[in-house]
Amino acid sequence: MENFDFGTFAYQAIFYLFAILIVVSAAMVVFVRSIIYSAFSLLFTLFGISAMYVYLSADFVAVTQIVVYVGGILILLLFGVMLTNKITQERLLTDVFNLVPALLIMLAILGSLLYTVLFRAKWHTSAQRTTTVVEPIGYEVITNYVLPFEIVSILLFVALIGAAYIARSDSKVSASK
């Protein structure tokens, strides 16, 4: 690089900052023993992945990631934590097991994935890039993906009704127990 370009430097530096944020917070999700800390680290992981979608010029996916994951799934997970633990206990800790074999399996899978991705796979990338994604998604949804779109809407409907039915407190079950 003969002349220093601040825009390029900032572009790459912000990418690496978000990558480090994702890796550190994802590691905290699985290594920290407090459940609440895990849930809040997941918040940073999800925001960082949303920033990665911005870098991949998938703007609509980035916004959807924030709305669905941070606004929906993370709140559901926090409700799950709150409803399935006695809040009166001071620190919500979770036990761990299989620590050493899991670490070995994780490192083996990570190593083989990195080896495959970096050294073995020759990805054929195209010369053209997607630039924005909002308008193409609209076209795709009403042309190529009409049937999957309708099916997935029915699936979401069924899943939400099923979840509400399953989670309902059933007095007969607890009475017969």
């Binding site: 890796v23 994802a26 979770t94 620590l99 074999p101 899991a102 994780m106 990570l110």
Partner: peptide, 14 residues
Amino acid sequence: AILFSLGLFGIMTR
């Protein structure tokens, strides 16, 4: 790949 293996570790240990 890093995210995948961390998630797998969480599933196996927690």
